[in-house]
Simulated assay, not measured.
Amino acid sequence: MRGRAPPIHWVDMHSSPLAPVFTALRAALHTMAAVLAVVVAVRAVGSGGATSVAAMTLAALWFAIYASGVVLVRSSRAGWWWLAALSLVWLGCLSVSGEAVYLVFVMFFLYLHLAGMRWGTVCVAMSTGAAVVGFGMHNGWSVAAAIGPILGAAVAVVISAGYQRLFDEVRSRQLLIDELLATRAELADEQREVGRARERERLAGEIHDTVSQSLSSIQMLIYAAERRAGGHSPELRTARTAAADALAETRRLIDELTPAPLDGRSLSAALQRVTDDAGGHGLSTRLVVDGEPFGLPMPVEAALVRVAQSAIGNVVQHARARVLRVTLTYSSDEVHLDIVDDGAGFDADVASGFGLTTMRRRVRELGGDLDVVSEPGHTSVAVGFRVEAGLR
């Protein structure tokens, strides 16, 4: 039923700062039910007569059903049966004792909570009428006898409306908090992964630029010395072999630290793989390599591959594009990567997503430039690095 809230005990608000408030409200309702049931039973005893035993029994049965429902009922369908049983027992008690009118105040809150404000108000109005009629049949008709249940019903409606609004507000805030916590955890994991990847790339670059280059130079020097010795020096030959083995091991270590798409591949081959993967999502893809390829510092190659992965991933997920073109251009002292699609585009001036921010930071840290131009039907991501001949 639309607008219906779940029963009090079905809602987990333990993590909410307002949990004590809801606990206090539940405790107050349970206490009121117990006190009123005792009042009805005691007053029935005091009235004497043949109906007193029936009134006491029905009051006790009513509270037993109430208490069992609080503990056992776990679904909305069972809640309706529980409420129907309470209503029937209450009406039976009211038929034999006018004192049972007191129990209607607990019923008001149960109707409003289980049936929601719309249908709950209808139930409250009907039970108010039943209470006035039942009390009048046993104690006579008067305006004062009618005012009590009516005022009680009005107060119950106002309190339940406030409770429902508070409940909805707390629930929406709790959902928002849960989403924020989950997002924060995801971002933390992603940042840690990015940090590990950047550190791996940095280490690979350092090893490539220092240890690998030094071992290569040592190997060449030993080879030159061996040639001058006429190739008859077993010590130099052993040293050259050891240097070659160390260089091979260093290169293997660099490969392990290199991003996966570059593992065992040239830059163009890695970009071809990333581009082909996008073609599996219904895009028409093409990679163009312009100019004479030359060796690039490993961090630059890794950055180009990572930018391509991120930009092409955005095209696949968000652009609704049909055509994707990737161009790798080598000039005398520069390398450029252009990723162009014909998708829906976006506002590049205000875009600040994590992927775009990461691309900008990665390129900027290596001294490169990244430009993004986007409009409906055309989006381009252009990356450029200036590469000195001695760093190739």
Rank of each mutant, 00 (worst) to 15 (best):
P6D: 12
P6N: 12
I8L: 15
H9K: 10
S16Y: 11
V21Q: 08
V21W: 12
F22H: 12
H30C: 04
H30I: 14
M32K: 15
A34T: 09
R43C: 05
R43N: 13
V45Q: 08
S47I: 01
S47A: 14
G48T: 03
A50C: 00
T51V: 04
I65D: 10
S76N: 13
A84L: 11
L88T: 08
W90E: 06
G92C: 11
S95Q: 09
A100F: 04
F109P: 00
L110E: 13
A115F: 11
G120E: 11
V124H: 08
A125H: 01
M126E: 03
A130T: 06
A131M: 08
V133L: 15
V133Q: 09
G136W: 15
M137L: 15
H138P: 11
S142V: 06
A144P: 01
A146R: 09
P149T: 04
V155M: 11
A156S: 13
I159R: 06
S160C: 07
F167G: 01
R171A: 07
Q174T: 12
L175E: 08
L175A: 10
A182D: 14
D189E: 15
V194W: 15
A197Y: 03
T210D: 13
A229V: 03
H232S: 12
T241F: 10
A246L: 15
R252S: 13
D255F: 01
P261D: 03
R265E: 01
Q272V: 00
D276P: 00
A278K: 02
L287R: 13
D290W: 01
G295Q: 07
M298H: 11
A302M: 04
L304H: 00
S310T: 05
I312L: 03
V315K: 02
V315R: 07
L324E: 05
D342Y: 06
G343R: 12
R362C: 04
V363W: 10
D369P: 00
E375G: 09
R386L: 06
E388A: 13
